[in-house]
């Protein structure tokens, strides 16, 4: 288990991170969310030990970060820079040996990954000759080549076409299955909803939301429902104890209003009056929660107690 305890970091006069804590279990995909400048990259750099925290500590298997071997971690930085003149295989082997692989082993692993990502024909090409997407895949390989326990991926899918996104997502899944800790940051909420087990929303260096995807969604549930019928649904207006949020000819969205009334009772009433085609409980999208939280409160921690 990776534990982050009360992490704080400031640069000059800016508080980049303020008392951030979280835990990640093996096999979990942990998503760091937040607007630009929220402290996601700083958190990742602290995890990678590129920066040192002003306060707080990072523990993995109860060992402090400074005692851990660097090659337990794999990092895909947000900034996509590579040696443009180096040959693909040479570059991968170089990073491999830095991470305690033998040169031979590093080359074998590199070729294995290149093959997996459809780049095996490019081993002797210079990095600068590859497309942007290909270079991003190379960086992905750099992060994973040495088989680290913890993968830290900063905006891993940004700027990739859907097909490549899918290829890389599959690799992340594979790592998840192998019981690795995966921490990623992204702006794409849809991505998070598909992949993440656990979410941490940062804003201005502070945690404003943390929990599993289900927990968060249930917490932000508005007790709202969506109804679709084959007929006109005007009859819905007659039902007490509900508040109609949106109404169209054959569909509507409503919330249960009354205090005494239960969900089941309302449903029963509705089913009696209207021929229902589709009836679902509306969950707030992560995107909505994100925007709501970031816009509303900057400082207020709505952390689960």
């Amino acid at each position: 288990m990776l534990e982050v305890l009360n992490l704080s970091k400031s640069f000059d006069n800016t508080q980049a991170l303020d008392d951030v804590s979280f835990k990640v279990l093996p096999g979990d995909v942990f998503a760091l969310l937040g607007p630009n400048g929220a402290g996601k990259t700083t958190t990742m750099r602290l995890l990678m030990h590129i920066l040192k925290p002003d306060e707080g500590e990072i523990l993995y298997k109860k060992e402090p970060r400074s005692k851990l071997k660097r090659n337990l971690f794999g990092y895909l930085p947000e900034e996509r820079g590579l040696y443009q003149r180096a040959k693909v295989l040479d570059l991968l082997a170089y990073v491999g040996v830095l991470n305690r692989l033998s040169h031979h082993r590093a080359e074998i692993e590199a070729i294995r990954y290149l093959d997996k990502l459809g780049l095996v024909d490019y081993t002797q090409k210079k990095v600068g000759e590859l497309s942007k997407g290909m270079q991003q895949k190379i960086q992905f390989i750099i992060a994973m080549l040495h088989d680290p326990d913890i993968l830290i991926l900063d905006e891993p899918f940004a700027g990739l076409d859907p097909v490549n996104q899918m290829v890389l997502r599959d690799i992340v899944y594979e790592n998840k299955k192998e019981g690795k800790i995966i921490i990623l940051s992204t702006h794409q909420m849809s991505e998070v909803e598909i992949m993440a087990d656990h979410i941490l929303l940062l804003n201005q260096g502070r945690t404003i939301l943390e929990g599993t995807l289900e927990e968060i969604k249930s917490r932000f549930k508005e007790n709202a429902f969506y109804l679709e019928s084959e007929d006109n649904i005007a009859a819905i207006r007659d039902i007490k104890d509900i508040k109609i949020i949106e109404e169209h000819n054959q569909s509507c969205k409503f919330a249960i209003n009354g205090k005494d009334i239960t969900k089941d009772k309302v449903i029963q009433t509705i089913f009696q009056k209207i021929p229902v085609k589709k009836f679902i409980e509306v969950e707030p999208s992560l995107n909505e929660i994100f925007i709501k939280l970031v816009q509303n409160g900057t400082g207020k921690s709505s952390k689960k107690s």
């Binding site: 590129i50 900034e79 820079g81 991470n99 960086q139």
Partner: peptide, 15 residues
């Protein structure tokens, strides 16, 4: 160069 193209972040991760 490593500073401008940020390769330094990869290097700093492993060394």
């Amino acid at each position: 160069q490593e500073k401008t193209n940020r390769v330094i972040e990869i290097l700093l991760s492993y060394a």
